[in-house]
């Protein structure tokens, strides 16, 4: 049996709203993106001019992309300047050797079953922070930069083309850039699996109500109660 000894307010409203907009827009971007690559629904009948199927899918992808970008930039602002103990970059300093020290090693060891204790962090644990950095932070930057460069191609010489055209040069050709945008898109479903598993697992192991915390904002700290010995 466990008893809730403390309710902690961890995820503030802006962070929770960000989380869900992010989750939804990534889902939409992934589905529409894959559809653009594999437009499988059988073609409509009649005059092409009345149909905009592919055009709509692209339109939704681009519209959602701008929501995704705005949301991402907001989160970046919040992480850097927000007065939020758990939602800012704060302690995440992977360029310092110290960051990879005790807490990180312990958390990793615990995940790898090398250690019995399960550390329980209010915010993100160091391994989670690293995972978020690699998948969500870098992954989003990659998708945004390549995405905007591709979007700029629709209007050569326009604003986005001028601002982000250099990205094409990193890949050598537009085709390679498209292919890499497509490949890196898979980072998100992979992350989703790791993420959902880690959340549910923490909920069970630490009983911290981490799952509902992204809706309510509260995490519980629980204490094991002594069993009746009758």
């Amino acid at each position: 049996m466990a008893r809730i000894i403390e309710e902690q307010y961890v995820w503030r409203l802006p962070v929770r709203i960000y989380h869900w907009i992010n989750a939804l827009s990534i889902a939409v971007l992934f589905v529409t993106g894959i559809y653009m690559a594999f437009p499988i629904i059988s073609p409509p009948v009649g005059e092409a001019v009345w149909y905009h199927r592919m055009a709509w899918v692209r339109y939704i992808h681009f519209g959602t992309a701008f929501i995704f970008i705005a949301n991402f930039l907001f989160r970046l602002y919040w992480a850097l300047f927000g007065n939020d103990r758990y939602g800012r970059f704060g302690g995440f300093k992977p360029w310092l050797p110290a960051w990879w020290g005790q807490p990180f090693k312990e958390q990793l060891a615990s995940y790898l079953f090398l250690k019995k204790e399960e550390p329980d962090y209010c915010g993100h644990n160091p391994v989670a922070a690293l995972t978020h950095f690699l998948f969500v932070f870098l992954g989003s930057w990659f998708m945004i930069l390549t995405g905007l460069a591709m979007y700029g191609e629709n209007n050569p010489g326009g604003f986005l083309d001028t601002m982000f055209g250099w990205v094409v040069l990193l890949f050598g050709s537009s085709l390679t850039m498209h292919t890499m945008h497509h490949l890196v898109a898979w980072v998100f479903p992979v992350y989703l699996i790791l993420h959902l598993y880690a959340v549910v697992r923490h909920d069970i192991v630490n009983r911290s109500s981490i799952t509902s915390s992204i809706i309510t904002g509260y995490k519980n700290r629980v204490e094991e109660c002594a069993e009746y010995a009758d």
Partner: peptide, 23 residues
């Protein structure tokens, strides 16, 4: 696989929750 590992770990020991503070 990790979930199975976790179940075994739970079965063999009481998981001890360490309270941690982060900056």
């Amino acid at each position: 696989a990790h979930a199975i590992g976790t179940a075994i770990k739970k079965g063999t020991s009481e998981s001890k929750t360490v309270e941690t503070e982060e900056d």
